[in-house]
Design a protein around this nucleic acid. Structure first.
Lengths: 337, 337
DNA sequence: ATGAAAGCGCTAACAA
DNA sequence: TTGTTAGCGCTTTCAT
C-alpha cells in the first residue's frame, strides 16, 4: 500500500491535487459530483491530510494552547475540561500544557507559540499580564481565564473572570451579617497577583464599611495549597495574638486546609471559628461541615473564554474583559455569633 | 526583519544550510569552530527550527500524547503532572488530551496519532486493552498507567500499575482484622473494567479466607464520582437490607461520597460504619474523619511509565508489565468492632 | 568537513 | 470548474 497522500487520492479520483485540496478545505468552486466522488474516496481509504505539510505551507495551525499553572488546585480541572470541550466544538485543536507553580508561564508560552505555532492561548493561573510587554509581543490572541487583566492597552489580551473585589466583599459581608467582627483573611502574597490584591482589598473594604478595621495581624499568608494553608492557619492559632471568630479563605483548598488546622488545634468549625471559602469546588460540599463558599461560574467562564478567544482569532473582536457574577453557596461552616 | 529560517542562519554564518542543519542536529562531522559560530548566531537571533518542516521531511515527531479519560478523579491530576515533568526531561514533548468518560479512547488515540504523528502514547483511565486489536494496529508504543493489561500478546503495549487484586485484599483484611464481618463493596461495573473486576475479586477472596462469604446485596455499584457514590451508598442505607459495618470503596472519591451519605443518613463514620478508600489522594487526609486508604505510589507510577515508554520508543525494550506495591494509610475512618 | 540539490505533502496563485 | 506549478523550511544523499 503506497502512502496515502493528496496525490494518491487525486490519482484515484482522476482529478488534480488542487481539486482534492479544494474539497478538503471546503472551497465552494468544486462541482458537486466531483466533490462527492473525492469525498467518498477519502472516506473509503481513510485519508487524513498531513498537518505538517499544511502548517509548513500556511505557516499557521489550528492549535489553541491552554497553559495551566498550578494543576493542584481542583478548581482548574473542570475549567480545563470545559474549555477543551468548547474548543473541540470549533475547528480548533486544544493542547493542554501544565507548568509548575514556580515556573515562568510567559517563557513557556513563547516556546509553545513558536514550536507549535498556536493561533491562540488560554492562560489559567498565574498572571501573565504582569509581564505585559512579553505577552503583547506574542501577537496571537490570548485570554486570561479567571484572571483580571490589569493593562487595558494590550489589544490581543482578553479576560474572563469574576469581580474579585466585589466577590470578596460579599464573602466578608456574609460573615459580618452573622455577627462576626474579627475576621482573618487567608490568602496569597499581595501585589504578587492581582487576584489576591483585589480580594484582599474587597474584603478589607467590606469590613470598613461595617465600621471596623482589619487587623494586619490577621492576614494569614499562604500558598494556594492544602498543606500551606494548614500550616499558616495552624501557626496563627498557636500564636497568642489570634483573636478571630471567622476566616475568609481566598480559595476552597485553603479553606479546607484551614478547617483541618482548626480541627487539629482542638477547635470546632463553625462552633469556635467559622470558615468561608472561594471557588465552589464540588468536593467542598462533601466535607463536614460542608463548606460555605463563593462559587465562580466555571462552566460559563469556560464557554465565554473560548468564545472570546475564537472571536479574537477570527478577527471578530479584540481585547475585551468580561466580568461574571458569583453566587454564595451556603454550607454549614459559618455560624451566627 | 526577514523570517528566521535555516537559510538565514546559513547566510549569516557564511556556510551552507546543510552545515547549519548538522549543527542543529548535533551531527559529529562539523568543524568545531564552524559549529561554535553557527551556534552563537542561533542564540543571538533566537532561531528555532520549524517543527513542521522537520516533521514533514522525517515523517515523525517527538510528541508523546497523554490520553486521560475521566479528569474528574483528582487521583489523575498528580500523575499527569508527574508524567509531563518526566517527559520534558527527555527529548520528547508531552501533549495532554482529555477525553470524556463516555467517549472512545481508542478512536481518540488514532486520531491523535495520525494528526499529531505522536511516537508514543500514555493512557490514563479507561481500558484500551479491551479494544486490543485496534490498539495493536497503532504500532507506536503505548503504556497503560494505573491499568492492568490483559492481553500479553501486544508487544507495543506496556503497563504500570499496582496489583489490584492484592491491594483490594489488603484493604479488606485491614477491615476484617479489626473485627468487621459484614463488609460492603462500593465499586464500578464489574467485567466492564479489568480494574474493577480485580479489586472485586481480591476483596471477596480476602473475605472468604477469613471464613465468611460476600453477600452480593452488599455490592454497591456506582460510577467513579462523588455524586454517584453518594447516591449508591444512600440507597443502600435506606433499604432494609443493609447490614454492613464497613465499606471498601474502590476509589477515594467514592469513599468520600460514601462518608457523606452515611453522615446525611444520620449515622457516624467510623462509629456506625467504617470506610476504607483506594488511591491515596491528598485531600482525603483533610476530611474528618481522615480517610483510611490504600495508597498508590503515583510518583513512581509516573516515573516508571515514562521510562518504560521512552525505552520502548527507542527500541531498548518491548511490552512489559510493571507491578508496584501499595501502602495502607491509616486514617480515622475505620474503627475496631 | 562542507555544499548542492531533491523532495517531504500541501496550498494558492495563475492559467486554461 | 479544473489543472499546473512554485514553493513553505528542513533533512539527507551524493558530490566535492
Amino acid at each position: 500500500m503506497s502512502k496515502l497522500t493528496i496525490r494518491e487520492i487525486a490519482r484515484l479520483a482522476e482529478v488534480s491535487v488542487s481539486t482534492v485540496s479544494r474539497v478538503i478545505n471546503d472551497m465552494p468552486d468544486v462541482n458537486a459530483k466531483t466533490r462527492e466522488r473525492v469525498n467518498s474516496l477519502i472516506d473509503e481509504h481513510g485519508y487524513v491530510p498531513n498537518a505538517s505539510a499544511r502548517t509548513l505551507k500556511q505557516n499557521q495551525t489550528n492549535i489553541i494552547c491552554i497553559i495551566v499553572k498550578g494543576i493542584h488546585n481542583p478548581f482548574f480541572a473542570p475549567i480545563v475540561e470545559n474549555i477543551q470541550q468548547e474548543i473541540v466544538k470549533t475547528k480548533y485543536i486544544p493542547v493542554v500544557h501544565y507548568i509548575d507553580e514556580s515556573s515562568d508561564e510567559v517563557g513557556a508560552a513563547s516556546q509553545l507559540l513558536i514550536e507549535k505555532k498556536a493561533v491562540g492561548l488560554v492562560f489559567l493561573g498565574g498572571n501573565p499580564t504582569s509581564k505585559a510587554r512579553a505577552v503583547s509581543k506574542f501577537k496571537v490572541p490570548c485570554v486570561l481565564s479567571t484572571m483580571t487583566q490589569r493593562s487595558q492597552e494590550l489589544k490581543n489580551v482578553s479576560s474572563v473572570c469574576v469581580d474579585d473585589f466585589k466577590a470578596a466583599g460579599s464573602a466578608v459581608r456574609y460573615l459580618t451579617d452573622r455577627g462576626h467582627r474579627s475576621i482573618a483573611i487567608l490568602g496569597g502574597r499581595r501585589m504578587d497577583r492581582d487576584l489576591v490584591w483585589n480580594r484582599y482589598n474587597g474584603a478589607v473594604k467590606a469590613m470598613e464599611e461595617k465600621g471596623f478595621s482589619f487587623d494586619e495581624e490577621n492576614y494569614l499568608e499562604s500558598k494556594f495549597s492544602l498543606e500551606d494553608s494548614y500550616r499558616a492557619t495552624g501557626e496563627a492559632l498557636a500564636s497568642d495574638a489570634h483573636r478571630f471568630t471567622a476566616i475568609f479563605a481566598m480559595s476552597d483548598i485553603m479553606a479546607i486546609g484551614a478547617m483541618k488546622a482548626i480541627h487539629d488545634a482542638g477547635l470546632n468549625v463553625p462552633g469556635d471559628i467559622s470558615v468561608i471559602g472561594f471557588d465552589g469546588i464540588r468536593i467542598g460540599q462533601y466535607f463536614d461541615p460542608s463548606l460555605t463558599t463563593v462559587r465562580q461560574p466555571y462552566e460559563e467562564i469556560a464557554v465565554r473564554s473560548t468564545k472570546l478567544l475564537v472571536d479574537n482569532i477570527e478577527g471578530r473582536d479584540t481585547g475585551r474583559n468580561i466580568v461574571l457574577d458569583t453566587l454564595i453557596i451556603e454550607g454549614d461552616s459559618v455560624r451566627s455569633v
